[in-house]
Amino acid sequence: MEIQKSNIDPGMDEPSKLAAQHQLSDDALLFEELKETLLHEDREALRELQNILNQPEKLSQKMSPVLEKRLEDFKEAFPNDYRAILEKIISEKLANSKEELLEAIYPIMGKLIKKYIALQFDLLRERMAMRNQNSIWYKTKTRIRAFFTGTKESDIILTDLMDVEIKNVFVIQKNSGLLIAAAINDAELHTDLVAGMMTAIKSFAEDAFDRKGAELEVITYDNYQLLLENYYSYYFVVALTGTISSHQDALIHEKMNNFAARHLNRKKVKDGQFSEAISKKLKDYFIDNPKV
């Protein structure tokens, strides 16, 4: 453009100007022809490339083999190139979720073990019941109890057969003894204190006898029993009346495991703060259906 401008002098007369302009268009045409000659091959290649880019089918035809090759290479190289990174990510994830995993596994493990034990107890109980049905020992024992207590024999037999009834249930944070949830029959009961004292007694018993990994599972007084089920970061206490059979014991533990699996997760119990929502569920699940 600079060349074109320099060819037309502003001081020229009109015919000279026209001649110059004519000369200019001739030059431009020649220049264009020269460009076409020199750049022909490049322009063809560019057009072809644009053509491919604008048509997905053609693009796909060209790219697919390349991508497939890359994918194959990636598949082959993946175990070697990324194993270390993946292992690091997985082990970090597992380490961070250790507590959550344990929290989830505990009730399931407990359920399986308890189910097996319950089944074994059922079989044992059936055998015992058959043996005791006409046992002289049971009849004699009942007569002696009736004689010394002044109670009718029939009443003693009835008491022996009396249903077990769940009175109070607590979910307590294991270490701190802070109450997470409670469902109680007795409104006068100081639930926080029960939770604290239960934890203190439990800690004392477990420390005093130094049984590695062993945990307190039952406290009995009079016809009252406290059944404990231990989980990773919390534990359950079910207070009940009546004489509990091994089968009923297994059933209550199963009930605790079911509740734990359904309603208690790490997020809910980690802070150790009291939850009205869990307490309501405890009441529905245990207290409103107290018979075992």
Binding site: S176, G196, A200, S203, E206, D207
Partner: peptide, 24 residues
């Protein structure tokens, strides 16, 4: 809400059961 544990006195603190300190 402060849940206060009044622990039996010990001449040396390492005699207090460790589990009492958990979650404190």
């Amino acid at each position: 809400s402060l849940i206060i544990w009044d622990i039996a006195g010990e001449v040396k603190q390492d005699k207090v059961p460790n589990s009492y300190f958990l979650g404190t």
